[in-house]
């Protein structure tokens, strides 16, 4: 392909505490109706931010706007200090990786092939030498090495979800956007996914994760952002946000929060 190649701006090292994503006054409309309105949110390197809220609250929309998949109707999204529009698609891909909710593949590529696709942004850069290591590590971390040679299309839903996560990890971006990474997974693999997220945060990466299980959010997230009807109802340390009265109001269901008898951390339960 004929390309007028501008030099690709490769990302430098990141420091925990720096702002990775800055969302300001974000408004997104669908069919004339706002699905997100007036959202201000900072995500810093080294933290896991859980995005929670009822169905239709705008969690996935917010993630898509941060990712750059949809353009905001008002407000701005900045990644690594620059507005999304200031980066080329490839420069964005070097800085943020997105795990979608659904996984499709048109042709029966093997698991290994799929994970390797995560390395595409780095083709032709010095980081390309690390391709094999990054792929191997990502596959080991998500427990998918065993079916490296099996076609992705022949895997179960939970296996596909982990392979997709491995692809995202192999991309080695400093900001990770995970849309319901645990939806199709059993308990062991749910915990594994969040252990991976924690590890990423410990490396100084910023992790934004949409999750329905409020217990998982309470256990792993450094901060929780609670969305309700397209607005940010609360954002802060999980102990503050995951409060019984606030959750009861937002979810319109009687919810109680009790301390775990052994560890003392909050347990979020519907009152039944």
């Amino acid at each position: 392909m004929i390309t007028l190649r501008r030099r690709v701006r490769q990302p430098g090292p990141v420091t925990a505490g720096d702002v990775a994503v800055r969302v300001a006054g974000l408004r997104v409309e669908r069919g004339g109706r706002p699905v997100l309105d007036g959202v201000d949110l900072d995500v810093v390197h080294g933290e896991i931010l859980a995005l929670v809220g009822p169905n239709g609250a705008g969690k996935s929309t917010l993630l898509a706007a941060v990712c750059g998949d949809l353009a905001p109707d008002a407000g701005t999204v900045a990644l690594a200090g620059k507005p999304l529009g200031a980066w080329t698609p490839r420069e964005l891909a070097m800085r943020r990786a997105m795990l979608p909710q659904r996984h499709t593949l048109s042709f029966p590529f093997t698991t290994l092939d799929v994970v390797r696709m995560g390395r595409v942004p780095w083709a032709g850069t010095a980081a390309e030498d690390a391709d094999d290591d990054a792929v191997a590590h990502a596959m080991a971390a998500t427990d998918v090495t065993a079916f490296a040679q099996r076609p992705f299309t022949a895997l179960s839903g939970g296996e596909q979800a982990r392979v997709a996560l491995a692809r995202v990890l192999a991309q080695d971006a400093a900001t990770l956007l995970l849309d319901e990474p645990t939806a199709a997974l059993d308990i062991r693999h749910q915990e594994l996914v969040f252990a991976v997220a924690k590890e990423q945060a410990a490396r100084g990466h910023a992790v934004v994760v949409v999750v329905h299980d409020l217990d998982l959010a309470a256990a792993y997230a450094d901060r929780v952002a609670l969305l309700a009807d397209g607005r940010l109802a609360a954002c802060g340390p999980s102990a503050d946000v995951l409060a019984a009265d606030l959750l009861t109001e937002v979810y319109q269901y009687d919810i109680e929060v009790i301390a775990h008898p052994r560890t003392g951390r909050p347990l979020v339960l519907p009152r039944r």
Partner: peptide
């Protein structure tokens, strides 16, 4: 042939391919 690797990524779907930096 020059498009080959990007065509591989396109198998993930347009959105995922774009997220991986493919124009």
């Amino acid at each position: 042939f020059l498009c080959a690797r990007r065509l591989d990524v396109l198998a993930l779907g347009e959105r995922a391919a774009r997220q991986l930096g493919v124009d």
